[in-house]
Write a protein that binds this DNA or RNA. Sequence first.
DNA 1: TTTATTTACTTAACCGATTAAGTAAATGAT
DNA 2: ATCATTTACTTAATCGGTTAAGTAAATAAA
Lengths: 338, 338
Amino acid sequence: MGNITIKMLAKELNLSTAAVSKALRDSHEISERTKTRVLELAAALNYVPHPYAGSLREKKSNTIAVVIPEVADSFFSLALNGIEAVAIENGYHALIYLTHERFEREKTILKDLESGRVDGVIMSVTMKTNTFDHIKTLNKAVPMVFFDRVCEEIDTAKITTNDEECGYQATQHLIDRGCKKIAILSISESLSINAKRIQGYQQALLDSGRQCEASYIIDYGDDPTENFERLRKLFQTADRPDGIVATVSKMTTDIYLVCMELGLRIPQDLKVVSFSNDSTVAILNPSLTTITQPAFEMGKSAASILFKALKNKYLVLSEESMVIPSELIVRNSTSSAV
Amino acid sequence: MGNITIKMLAKELNLSTAAVSKALRDSHEISERTKTRVLELAAALNYVPHPYAGSLREKKSNTIAVVIPEVADSFFSLALNGIEAVAIENGYHALIYLTHERFEREKTILKDLESGRVDGVIMSVTMKTNTFDHIKTLNKAVPMVFFDRVCEEIDTAKITTNDEECGYQATQHLIDRGCKKIAILSISESLSINAKRIQGYQQALLDSGRQCEASYIIDYGDDPTENFERLRKLFQTADRPDGIVATVSKMTTDIYLVCMELGLRIPQDLKVVSFSNDSTVAILNPSLTTITQPAFEMGKSAASILFKALKNKYLVLSEESMVIPSELIVRNSTSSAV
DNA sequence: TTTATTTACTTAACCGATTAAGTAAATGAT
DNA sequence: ATCATTTACTTAATCGGTTAAGTAAATAAA
């Protein structure tokens, strides 16, 4: 587009581009008179410096990348809100990349980011990320901060919540409310947060003198119909669970719908706890007991730490990792007596 | 970061940077032997071209900006999904800017975008946008496409849904289900889509021989407590409505909560229709009758049209506007007999 | 055999900004 | 009055690519 450049300002004012550049940056080498002339013309012509010219020269893009699986998910959209807020504060721009849980896409995106397009990367890996060379390669070129779905193999800052403890808490809560057979829905083998939540679940069962039956750990995959069927089957067995932990928000809909279909009552026949950041949980029928993650704060912290690293290149990112606790919010889906 | 550049490849291969550049772009001026040598070294050293260098020369950033009020909102997050999908397909990158409904922020963002940072802009204005100079100025420099919250004053492509018709449909549906006193929650005076929804509401009332009472058009603002209070007051009057249309999703929670608090039963005492793209509406108590917008498709279309314009600079954007209809999905919040 | 053309490069300019180094004029110091 | 310093600029190099224009050598045409 035919935009105003420094060259055009210089010509108009009979100055060199260097003088104009320095005037705009308030250099002591330029007289007040000239500064005023430059600033006035720049304002009049609505001059906006071209960001890529400066970036090239300064080797600094003032841009970060956010690589996440999905944005139509309360957790990630809230986290993105937090990231963006901090980015703006720091005069940075945020490029967003959605992997849609596809490993190949993640690889392609990270490869592109090696180019110098961004100064730093904030990311949450896909459910399927099980090799890490692409991440290691990028991490050599650009500072990275992980949040939520972190990658243990990379030595950098990781913002997580207390997943294992939450798995424990959720399960313990169901035990406290009288559940005997507690199931858990698992999203991905390779995801560390998923593994931790399940570890917490197993520990809670063990601590209360129960056994962990593998058949109560249900895989929840990509295929919605299959997920639904799997739940329906589970809920129709003689040994059907009387308590269930959903490790991600979107599982909740299926649980409620299958219960409606089969005539199972929540919480009388089945008590439900879900990891969720949805604002509608309070008006579900019954309202849903949740483990609510500090999504916004996690995004904010991830971004803050990244900017700290960008300002201080001697910062050791791996020492900046933090764990922000989630909250168990008890509602009616786990009421004991009704 | 110390990345591989064309200069380094050139030195290593005893070639000029021009030769390397041409080899990488498969120019006929370069011999097969040399191309192979270049390509092999580039692959071995994991060369990724610096995007800003090319952008500067080509005056093309391969980046678009998405300016929206919020991302923690089902409509916008789904739309963003659609936009991003099309961007990737076209080899483009998406910069995201959130206005958080703040007019000043919108102005600052648009000003920055005049710089040449992006090749095009997709946007949905804030609730408060009531002057348009900042948009007009940007539109002179960069092609823009509006979606959902469009700006009538700007002559360019606008992707909307049939808002007026939907306001009519929602209201008519409540009339059909026997409602006598129908209220509507309004988000913003200046927002054209809001105005249209309310026009549809008024038309439906008129067409069925009723009067439109101003007291049934409720302003819903920024302050959550105030919104809640206003609803509570409305529902406590002798003349309280027996039907209500929520023009945005987040109002639903308040309606349900106020009803719970006051012991009003949905749908017996109050029937509710909401504009919403939330996936949880089916498991609310009672499940919520919605006008569901084609959010993903709107995002996709907006992006497709923008890229069409980027490929063909003679395209007249204002002729590409389109209206994608929403869908009334009847659920239990508007059941007539119970 | 001589000239024309093609091949396979290199040189140099450019995109828009920044900045180190150079310079002429004005001011200050001795 | 002379040299030193400061002021207020300009020139030129740079970031990492792309490309128009130039060129030497090889091949083809007359």
